[in-house]
Computed example of a mutant assay.
Amino acid sequence: MRYLIAETTWKLVSLSKAVADSGTLRTRCDAGEEIEDFHQMGEHDLIVLDAAQLRRHCSLTRLRELRPDTPICLIARKPEPEQIATWLMSGADTVIDEAAPLPEMLGRLAAVARRAHGIAQPTLERGPLYLDLAARRVHVGEVTLSLSPKLYEILEFLALRPGRLASREALLNHVYGFENEPAPRVFDVYMCNLRTHLNGIAGALRIDTVRGSGYRLEVTERRKTARALAA
């Protein structure tokens, strides 16, 4: 997943680093007036910003208008219950006290982000694929696929949106975050390598290319047996 994080306070800078250290992708902006522009430019799984920015540079109403389905997390300093209720009613999905420990904050962010995709637990099944979203690993039966970080990120993006067309631009923005995008040929190699990893289950799941439009994950067969990941 990829979060848009407005690094306008030291607490948000620390949280942003912890997000990156966990393996989650992030798009960073360091000025409050840039939040709406970055939000409009590309699709994110979650927006994280300091609640004080709402009084200065952006509004929950505007953020919701731009992308209604993107969850919003506010970080606030000792928020009062009445203020929390107002923010939630205005469009925020959760409010976290900035004094909360980083592990708790990371857990709450991940929960809000995945539940926006309709996923209750940090695991995801797509046909014979079993994705461990927390560990960033993909399993087929008892086999763990040896995916590079970029291949995992492409597959996760598509698996979170099964049957939906994802444009090439959307995938590039997700993986690279508007920076250092590779030549088109490099991305084609990524897709070829990912399909090679999935060759063994091609009858149950495939990545379709819609010429001139993008890519789509199609699942044609459910996983036959449940598999529990080791703790």
Rank of each mutant, 00 (worst) to 15 (best):
residue 53 Q to C: 13
residue 176 Y to H: 13
residue 57 H to L: 06
residue 72 I to S: 01
residue 69 D to G: 07
residue 190 Y to R: 00
residue 165 L to K: 09
residue 18 A to D: 05
residue 162 P to R: 08
residue 194 L to T: 05
residue 216 R to S: 06
residue 83 Q to Y: 03
residue 197 H to L: 10
residue 114 R to I: 02
residue 59 S to M: 12
residue 71 P to N: 06
residue 49 L to M: 14
residue 227 R to C: 07
residue 227 R to E: 09
residue 61 T to C: 15
residue 196 T to S: 13
residue 71 P to V: 02
residue 217 L to P: 00
residue 61 T to G: 14
residue 162 P to W: 09
residue 18 A to S: 10
residue 228 A to Q: 12
residue 95 V to E: 05
residue 2 R to A: 03
residue 209 T to N: 09
residue 28 R to F: 11
residue 83 Q to L: 15
residue 104 E to T: 13
residue 221 E to T: 11
residue 33 E to V: 03
residue 58 C to I: 13
residue 182 P to Q: 04
residue 42 G to K: 14
residue 36 E to V: 03
residue 157 F to H: 07
residue 108 R to Y: 00
residue 108 R to A: 03
residue 125 E to P: 02
residue 58 C to F: 06
residue 9 T to Y: 07
residue 205 L to G: 01
residue 214 G to S: 09
residue 216 R to N: 04
residue 202 A to C: 11
residue 205 L to P: 02
residue 208 D to K: 13
residue 106 L to E: 04
residue 65 E to P: 01
residue 81 P to W: 04
residue 176 Y to P: 07
residue 169 E to V: 15
residue 39 H to G: 02
residue 33 E to A: 15
residue 227 R to K: 14
residue 156 E to H: 06
residue 46 L to P: 01
residue 92 A to V: 15
residue 162 P to M: 09
residue 214 G to F: 00
residue 2 R to W: 05
residue 70 T to C: 13
residue 185 R to N: 12
residue 152 Y to Q: 11
residue 10 W to S: 11
residue 207 I to N: 02
residue 163 G to D: 07
residue 66 L to F: 04
residue 165 L to E: 08
residue 172 L to S: 08
residue 111 A to F: 04
residue 115 R to P: 00
residue 163 G to V: 04
residue 197 H to V: 10
residue 38 F to K: 06
residue 155 L to M: 01
residue 205 L to C: 06
residue 184 P to Y: 02
residue 224 K to M: 10
residue 119 I to V: 08
residue 8 T to M: 10
residue 121 Q to D: 14
residue 39 H to E: 02
residue 108 R to M: 07
residue 117 H to Y: 13
residue 77 R to Q: 13
residue 192 C to D: 10
residue 98 E to L: 12
residue 164 R to S: 10
residue 113 A to M: 09
residue 25 L to C: 09
residue 211 R to P: 02
residue 167 S to E: 04
residue 95 V to P: 05
residue 180 N to L: 14
residue 37 D to T: 02
residue 109 L to S: 00
residue 187 F to G: 01
residue 3 Y to N: 01
residue 226 A to E: 11
residue 176 Y to L: 06
residue 50 D to W: 09
residue 110 A to R: 12
residue 178 F to S: 03
residue 107 G to P: 03
residue 185 R to S: 12
residue 18 A to C: 08
residue 6 A to R: 02
residue 109 L to M: 12
residue 230 A to M: 11
residue 200 G to L: 12
residue 193 N to A: 15
residue 6 A to V: 00
residue 188 D to L: 11
residue 58 C to K: 03
residue 78 K to L: 14
residue 78 K to V: 08
residue 54 L to S: 09
residue 77 R to D: 14
residue 169 E to T: 15
residue 74 L to M: 03
residue 185 R to P: 03
